[in-house]
Amino acid sequence: MSPAELTERVRTGVPLAGAWGVEVLEAAEGRALLRLPQRDDLLRPGGTVSGPALMGLADVAMWAALLTLTEGRDESLTASLSITFLRAPPPGAVLAEARVIKKGRTLSYGEVTLRAEGSADPCAHVTTSWAAVPRLSGRG
């Protein structure tokens, strides 16, 4: 899938990603780079990007990376997400670089590094696992 096709898939599958304006900048086999644009409504007191916004971006980024391995048909769900906040990102866009470390039949594992756009220093590191959901008959 192209980054534009993946952006559309992510925004359709997670409407909050569309509301926030999340876009896929790059996508390759088991990897994805996403951008969360600067939004005043995602800032917390003190002017930094909020933790919930960073966690949401990381979650969507990992799903995008999984979608690159499944031709856009991944229905797995987040089983765990652990985030370590390393530094407060300044107001502005945030990038999330996701990488699938292990894609299993029932459980997948990956990591996401978040950083302020224009900075090489990570603001957060995420590890996450995803559980495959059996396809139910009658589901679209």
Rank of each mutant, 00 (worst) to 15 (best):
L95K: 00
E29V: 05
R39A: 08
L69S: 04
E71T: 06
S80H: 10
R44G: 08
A93W: 07
L95R: 00
L57S: 01
G51M: 01
M55Q: 11
L77T: 08
G30Y: 09
L77F: 07
P89E: 15
M55K: 04
A32F: 01
A65M: 03
A96L: 11
P91W: 12
R44L: 13
D41Q: 05
L67V: 03
G46F: 14
L33M: 13
R35A: 10
M62K: 06
S82M: 12
A98L: 14
G46S: 13
M62V: 09
L57N: 01
S76G: 07
A79R: 08
M62Q: 11
L43I: 06
A88N: 14
T78D: 04
A96W: 05
R31C: 03
L43K: 04
S76R: 07
A61G: 10
L43C: 01
L36A: 05
G47R: 07
R44C: 02
A88P: 13
D74A: 10
A32R: 00
D59W: 07
L77A: 13
L43Q: 01
P52Q: 02
R31F: 04
A79F: 07
T84P: 03
F85D: 00
L81M: 15
R73N: 08
L86S: 11
S82A: 13
R99Q: 11
S76D: 03
R31M: 07
A98N: 08
E97P: 07
G92R: 08
D59L: 09
L43N: 04
L43M: 05
A58T: 13
P52F: 00
L95D: 00
R44A: 09
P89G: 14
T48Y: 15
L86H: 14
A93M: 08
A61T: 06
R39I: 13
P91Q: 15
G56V: 12
R99N: 01
V49W: 05
S80W: 08
V94S: 08
I83R: 05
T78E: 05
G47V: 14
R73F: 06
R99L: 02
S50E: 05
I83Y: 03
I83L: 11
D41C: 09
A58R: 12
A53N: 13
M62D: 07
S76E: 04
D59A: 12
L66P: 01
T84D: 15
R39F: 06
P45I: 12
A98R: 08
G56R: 09
A79H: 06
R87W: 14
S82T: 15
W63G: 13
S80M: 06
G72I: 10
R39D: 02
R39W: 10
T84I: 12
G72D: 02
P91Y: 12
L67Q: 12
S76M: 02
I83G: 13
A79M: 09
L42R: 09
L34S: 00
A79N: 07
G56D: 06
L67T: 03
L54V: 06
A53F: 13
A65K: 03
L34T: 01
A96H: 06
T68K: 00
L57C: 02
L42A: 11
L36Q: 05
G92Q: 07
G72F: 09
A64F: 09
P89H: 14
L66R: 06
M62A: 08
L77C: 04
T48D: 10
